[in-house]
Design a protein around this nucleic acid. Structure first.
Lengths: 288, 288
DNA sequence: CAGCGGCGATACCTCAGCAGTATTGATGAG
DNA sequence: CTCATCAATACTGCTGAGGTATCGCCGCTG
């Protein structure tokens, strides 16, 4: 008989799968197992905790309030376990191989800032190799939480910085990127309201984490190059931090958006990091 | 055959036990199991990770660099798993029972501040019961990490706030608490150097987390009441935040210590807390 | 309203792998 | 050289995780 206080990661993974799918069959498939043992594992978990996590009818599965909490906490815990594995591996690797750190950043964002940072850090005494991982929006925090990256460049308020130590690097307003020659480009300033319903320039649709796209009129895009091309073709628009102006082609125009949220670029790292190189990199960033 | 990326909490618990004891036999005893399966489990873990965590001779066990990382990360991960369990239980409990939140604070610290906070919060609309857990120094952070508490009052720089969201409540200098009539009480200010080696007032010795005491000349103490009594008997001294003056008996005297680190009292909560009551409590604290 | 289909739970079985006992092998101390 | 200590190995037993077959519940449909 297993005692209380002995939850295994396997159980957490099972629960997260069911809680996300809200369907035992699909969850089992995703986990590469049969449905009955999954059902059993979940109800054992519930019995051991003495807590109902799911409300099941034969037609549907829903989360209880406690289940919602569990889902949230379990994701965090699983990330921490995964981070243990990755960071240990990387630590071992660093001792034999050349040490390096992994920096995660959103593709196409803050590139001059990043370039300056990497140059400045490389010039520091005792600096090591920095592997830059370009990832999709919102992916950086996950890499950092799961230990696949050591530092990340994030953008408040878009990215959730809750689990990290951060230092602010730069704060800037936002501009709308519009096709050259469009009516709106004649204005000095715009507001978000002006941009919400421009019939000929619908907002683009980005893929969700699972790869599907939300419904809507705008074009589906995977990256900023695509989007910029669509904008220059007069098919869409975007709102972006001020600093992106330096990289714009001349067939698009930037117009300040007065009431768009201010973007703060931050450098983030796991809260208990004891990595000397990470500390050096952060210090370098703050001196820029 | 278990695939990579499937570390179980059991393995982490085993590793932490061995890494802490640096002795397979004792670790096995602590885990309530025999030594051979523990040895096997650890070497399986190493093989699966492809990383040497321990250097064993038949006389001693030491951690490799990767092992140090693993120990640190594994503790964090295990706390997160434990937190999952506790918070889920508490969430379920809250829905049937009366909801409440648990506040952890160091015994004997910031009592007037805390009293004011609890009163002010109780007067708020929608406030719920607050269970106060008084714990030993440094214990608060563990309660918060493992989900046994929802908020804590911490004191920088003593407590490690790395894993939490915090708001500063108060900053204050420190004073030395001395027996009334002692020579040092005639001074306007003291320095830490003045206090380091007062032959008749040795610094007290507090228990370590495992219950043992460090060696030294000072008296062993378990709590502040004990220590205050020893001070009034002319056997010891202590350095404490300024605000403790209001609770002093008249047979001890407080003298400012010029170079002692400034103490910041902060309210801390887990970084991803979505608890409405916690947010209310923090807001109330900031308005004090 | 009866039959069908989808879905979670139950019953029962198999086997992987975890834990226990006994023993070996290595190494430092006396 | 011998003994004591401690981790690793060999072998065995059994718990419990996972698979298959099936049931029971319920919404849908003709």
């Amino acid at each position: 008989m297993r005692t209380l206080g002995d939850v295994e990661t396997r159980e957490l993974r099972y629960f997260v799968a069911v809680a996300e799918e809200l369907h035992f069959g699909r969850a089992a498939q995703r986990l590469g197992m049969a449905q009955p043992p999954l059902s059993r594992a979940i109800s054992q978990l519930e019995r051991r905790l003495g807590v109902a996590l799911l409300q099941r009818t034969s037609r549907s599965v829903t989360l209880t309030e406690a289940g919602e909490v569990m889902l949230h906490e379990a994701r965090v815990a699983l990330d921490a376990v995964e981070a243990t594995e990755h960071r240990t591996r990387r630590a071992a690797h660093a001792t034999v191989d050349h040490p390096s750190i992994v920096l995660a950043t959103k593709a196409g964002a803050s590139s001059e800032l990043l370039a300056k940072l990497l140059d400045a850090y490389a010039a520091e005494p005792g600096s090591i190799r920095v592997d830059v991982t370009l990832c999709g929006p919102g992916e950086q925090t996950r890499l950092l939480r799961t230990g696949r990256a050591d530092v990340a460049i994030l953008h408040q308020p878009y990215d959730d910085t809750a689990h990290f130590d951060i230092e602010e690097l730069r704060t800037e307003g936002q501009v709308a990127i519009l096709p050259a020659g469009h009516v709106l480009t004649t204005r000095e300033h715009l507001t978000l309201n002006d941009l919400a319903d421009v019939p000929d320039l619908p907002l683009p649709r980005w893929p969700r984490p699972d790869g599907s796209y939300p419904a809507g009129p705008g074009p589906e895009v995977q990256n900023h190059t695509q989007l910029l091309q669509l904008i220059s073709l007069g098919r869409s628009l975007m709102v972006s931090p001020d600093s992106c102006r330096s990289q714009l082609r001349d067939d698009v125009v930037a117009v300040p958006v007065a009431d768009a949220p201010t973007i703060t670029t931050v450098i983030a790292w796991p809260p208990h990091s004891r990595s000397r190189p990470v500390a050096d990199l952060v210090r370098t960033a703050l001196r820029l």
